[in-house]
Amino acid sequence: METSLQLDVLIYPNEVKIATPEELREWELETASQVSIPTVRLFVALYPYNPAAMSPNYETAAEELPFVPGQIIKVWGDKDCDGFYHGESGGLSGYVPSNMVTEIPVDDEYLKHLLLQQGFLPVERTGMYTPALSDTSSVPDDAVVRRMVALFDYDPWESSPNLDSEVSTKMNRSL
């Protein structure tokens, strides 16, 4: 009968020694605090961006990611001191100007996967109500106004919480 012995070994510049359980726990805690896995966040492009023509950094424009409105961009980490994220979309990676995109707050990993597969969110639809920028008379001065992007289509005939779908349709048209 053959038996095998497994040992955990610590290798130092001047020595090799068999690790004790306490030393392994210390090493794991130390390593865990040094290794950080960047979280993947999803953003959607709000405007078209062609770095060759639009980048304020003409020396590094080749390192920036081009995109079009509605394009979904996978981003790692936070923006840098210059206001750029590092992202990837459509098989390309590069720097993404933070003022041209907005985050899609998605916690569900499966939904993230579906959105990344889709690659784009619809940005223009005919028949949708879009208020003019001057039409802000009903917005209080202290209100925080945020631009949002719908993740899903909404059909009041199929998804209305109201029992009478006609009520939902009238309410949506009045918005």
Rank of each mutant, 00 (worst) to 15 (best):
F43Y: 11
Q117Y: 08
A132T: 15
F67G: 01
M128W: 10
G94I: 04
L111H: 01
L92T: 11
Q118E: 15
G119W: 04
V106K: 00
I37T: 10
S36Y: 01
E64C: 10
I18T: 14
L114A: 14
V68A: 10
N172V: 01
P69F: 01
A150H: 11
P161R: 08
L42A: 05
T130L: 15
K170E: 13
Y85N: 09
Q6T: 14
R25E: 13
I11Y: 06
L111F: 03
G83D: 12
P66I: 07
G87S: 02
V123H: 00
I104Y: 03
T3W: 04
E28T: 08
E2C: 10
Q6R: 08
V123A: 07
L29T: 09
G83C: 01
L5E: 11
L92N: 13
D142R: 06
A61V: 09
G87L: 03
F120D: 12
K74Q: 15
I37F: 10
K79F: 05
F67S: 00
I104H: 01
P48M: 05
R146D: 08
Y58K: 14
W27M: 14
D153V: 09
M128Y: 08
E30R: 07
S138Y: 08
Y12R: 10
R25C: 06
Y85E: 06
E22M: 05
V101N: 09
N57M: 14
E103V: 06
L46V: 00
